[in-house]
Design a protein around this nucleic acid. Sequence first.
DNA 1: ATAATAGTGTCTTTTAGACAATATCAC
DNA 2: GTGATATTGTCTAAAAGACACTATTAT
Lengths: 235, 235
Amino acid sequence: MARTRNSDGYPSFAVTVDLVVLTVRDDELQALLVSRGEEPYLGRRALPGGFVRPDEDLPDAASRELAEETGLHQVPGHLEQLATYGAPDRDPRMRVVSVAYLALAPELPDPRAGSDAAAATWVPARRALSQRLAFDHHRILRDGVERARAKLEYTGLGAAFCPPEFTVARLRRVYEAVWGVELDPRNFHRKVTGTPGFLVDTGRTVVEGPGRPAALFRADPAAELSPPLTRARLG
Amino acid sequence: MARTRNSDGYPSFAVTVDLVVLTVRDDELQALLVSRGEEPYLGRRALPGGFVRPDEDLPDAASRELAEETGLHQVPGHLEQLATYGAPDRDPRMRVVSVAYLALAPELPDPRAGSDAAAATWVPARRALSQRLAFDHHRILRDGVERARAKLEYTGLGAAFCPPEFTVARLRRVYEAVWGVELDPRNFHRKVTGTPGFLVDTGRTVVEGPGRPAALFRADPAAELSPPLTRARLG
DNA sequence: ATAATAGTGTCTTTTAGACAATATCAC
DNA sequence: GTGATATTGTCTAAAAGACACTATTAT
């Protein structure tokens, strides 16, 4: 494997960004995976990602890759740094340090087949985590899913999985899908509407099938839930 | 600035680890800072850190630097990855991506003057954050302090600031120092001793000045506080 | 004895969680 | 009408927070 030093005499690394992109589709937490079109791990599923450019900041590289994979610019939802993975043997070609980002997106149109990525597809998180992925992407995906689950507890981040305006039931199904639990609709409603600043009532309602029309809300993206919703206690 | 590609044709980066090392001394949250002995930022205070070696994993680089700066091997306490900083202009010499680690340590003997580092000293976090630091270390330090504050809420990590055996009062002063608040000793005592698995009674007591002897506890390093201690509500 | 700190008990308020009851839609 | 979902209200249990009180030490 290449172990080079750059022109200044410091050890030389390649730097990539890898993306854990999560959404809730069909009441299920799903992750975006690509199929690798080259060695190593040819044909294996992997997280979308790519090399950081020489003059590109890390968040910019993450947004760029996300836009390339999903075909969407100005990705709605949420993008945050997850963690960095740099084991010396994680890429057999050379020393690569990967900065992983976590993106939470509302249900998007199917990934662009015509885009840069090789067949990016949504895969249920449970299934994605039960198959072999390229590199150390299994661990990165696991860390990303766990981060998302944890963050829903104490932030209003669940709304990042919803379109700009949504009902309480929609938000509740997000929590149920991400945590894999059932929540009491009445207590959930009281909790989220009673947290000051979390949800903003638009004054409008929507009818979705039978039942009383539901109020439409908008999310305050920076809201914190205090006290938190707790996976262990809700139900 | 150098903008090189390595021998494989990929953009070449240098990778460093920077350390936010926090402790509680004199009932105050303090951070470990060094003085830079070379350009750029000659003489400016900075976080300890250094280049990752060609075949070294990131956590290993962090432990190595920590040992070099503190003079202690097998650092007690806690070490976790904080975040990664890679703005293209963050180091004027070349493109450097820095993986920051957060270390929480019990009160240590004064940093080794004879060690590798140039005059590593403990500085109260408030003061460290009010002065100019080299590179983007102000932001890294701020992120590290905030991470520590947040983690004390929902984990038993406060014990990482304590020696292996400690009293409830010692732990409480850690929380008070990190959060900068006063906590009710009686309610704090009931909370931490009542959380199953958090504290393990050694059966022994110590006398520290006047007052009833205090029971000595050991911490379960992996304990989670549920429901959490909350900065906003305690007091 | 007095001051200081450790630890327990008690009360009030807040919140979680269970669940009844009402509102408003599709059919 | 029936069945479904939204929303409000009520009750109980758990926990937070205020604070009285007891226990055990140094001085």
